[in-house]
Design a binder for these strands. Structure first.
Length: 112
DNA sequence: ATCATGACCATCC
DNA sequence: AGGATGGCCATGA
């Protein structure tokens, strides 16, 4: 997988602190490809193939909805993991989304 | 190069 | 509120 694009996505995803979540669009934006939000999601699909496991469960859609839960080992795995991290999940969506939302740009432009 | 697909996003109804 | 539509862009055949 020399697909640098995915690699970048993984990089960001791995930077997501525990108990925090982010959106595909946010990651895409941080990569400079806000329009490629779907690619981010696709990249997450490949996340399982990535070597350093990527916390894809910390990545949700712009509504904080666990859209990709079905791509996990089990549809409940994602929400379960989130709950383990301390992220409240209700009806397949993150509670206090804005509260637990983590901005990738914050880690990128950290020392800029 | 073209077609089809997708863990999205925004907009419209 | 929830369904449908268009757009945008990378990947694979």
């Amino acid at each position: 997988m020399d697909t640098n694009f995915y690699e970048q996505v993984y990089e960001i995803a791995r930077l997501i602190p525990k108990g925090r979540v982010t959106s595909y669009g946010a990651i895409a934006k941080s990569l400079g490809a806000a329009k490629s939000s779907r690619m981010v999601g696709h990249a997450m699909a490949y996340a399982g193939t990535a070597h350093p496991k990527v916390p894809a469960h910390r990545v949700v859609n712009s509504s904080g909805l666990l859209t990709g839960k079905f791509h996990f080992e089990t549809p409940e795995r994602m929400e379960e993991l989130l709950l383990e991290e301390g992220v409240e999940v209700k009806n397949d969506k993150v509670v206090n989304f804005k509260k637990v939302f983590w901005n990738p740009l914050d880690e990128i432009n950290v020392d800029e």
